[in-house]
Amino acid sequence: MTKEITLPLTKEVIKDLRAGDSLSLSGVLYVVRDAAHKRIVAALDKGEPLPFELKGETIYYMGPSPAPPGKIIGAAGPTTSGRMDPFTPRLLAEGLKGMIGKGSRSEEVMEAIKKYGAVYLGAIGGGGALLSRKITKAEVIVYEELGPEAVLRIEVKDFSVTVINDSYGGDLYVEGKKKYRIEN
């Protein structure tokens, strides 16, 4: 059964989520990937203001293809989250609540997810055309010069994700594999 969730994620909603749950998200996401993570953490280190309020928000690890004429955005599927691991615990400490991407996270990130009561969600990698349909609005808010790595604020409707790491230490990648593994 799919749970309908309205963003931003609240403490109560996060408490209810378990690895393996299917969710349908509606609301605002911030699109941030490699280069922008580096800049955001550098800004935090210098005590500079951030380009958007992190507290309570959800980041989508993504770099879209250009919007063809008449479209809001191009293909818009998740990128590999692990590359953001070195920056993530810092952002979780600042109040980030949700992350959407694909692929496994480091021990440090999983610990921080538990510690700060956050959640890591997986979207279908290579599902860029399908996911682009679920984006109803997209605007660059900062770092436009980074091209496909600029920070976007997007609005989504019925955006499908699966809970990978919940706030209790649950990990779909570990649990799913265990269930279907055939030992020789």
Partner: peptide, 13 residues
């Protein structure tokens, strides 16, 4: 295909 990783790593054959 015995590893159990499955489509998108969600567990499967």
């Amino acid at each position: 295909n015995r590893l159990g990783i499955g489509p998108m790593g969600y567990g499967g054959r």
